[in-house]
Every structure is written in structure tokens, then in C-alpha cells.
């Protein structure tokens, strides 16, 4: 029983120190360069959504024209 408790305690203690050794893009984050990437992604995303929005409006306009044509015929 004591062995198991010790094992759990040891894993709990060593896990955080092990986790710190995993290589991550920490320097990129600390220099703030990551926000450049975020800005680029957001510009592309907003551009694509704007395109979808105008496409939606255009289709609405065409639908109105078709409805008028159908009433006339």
C-alpha cells in the first residue's frame, strides 16, 4: 500500500517538471510575434466571410428578380 502511495506521489511530483521540458514555441510567444500570425489569419478569415456575405446578398437580389418574373409570366 505504501509503495503505491509513494508511486503516485512521485509521479505527481515529477510530472510537472517533465512537462516543462517539452519543446514549445515559447520564444515566439514571449516576443509577441505570435500576434502577427493571428493578425494574418484574421485578415484572411474576415476577407473570406466578407466574400460569403456579398455572395449571400447577391443571391437574395437574384431571388427577388426571379420572383418578379414568375409573377409576370
Amino acid at each position: 500500500m505504501k509503495k503505491i502511495v509513494n508511486l503516485i506521489l512521485l509521479t505527481c511530483l515529477t510530472f510537472p517538471t517533465m512537462a516543462q521540458q517539452v519543446e514549445m514555441a515559447d520564444s515566439m510567444r514571449s516576443e509577441g510575434k505570435i500576434y502577427v500570425v493571428v493578425a494574418i489569419i484574421m485578415v484572411i478569415f474576415i476577407g473570406l466571410i466578407a466574400m460569403l456575405y456579398y455572395l449571400d446578398k447577391k443571391i437574395s437580389r437574384i431571388e427577388k428578380i426571379i420572383d418578379k418574373l414568375m409573377k409576370n409570366s
Binding site: A19, Q20, V22, M24, I34, Y35, V37, V38, I41, M42, F45, I46
Partner: peptide, 14 residues
């Protein structure tokens, strides 16, 4: 949009 910003900036497990 939130997931694109948060997905890059927020902390993730190492």
C-alpha cells in the same frame, strides 16, 4: 473567429 484567435494564443498542454 474566436477559435482562430484563442486556438493560437491560449495555453495548451505540453
Amino acid at each position: 473567429g474566436y477559435s482562430m484567435v484563442g486556438g493560437i494564443i491560449f495555453e495548451v498542454p505540453r
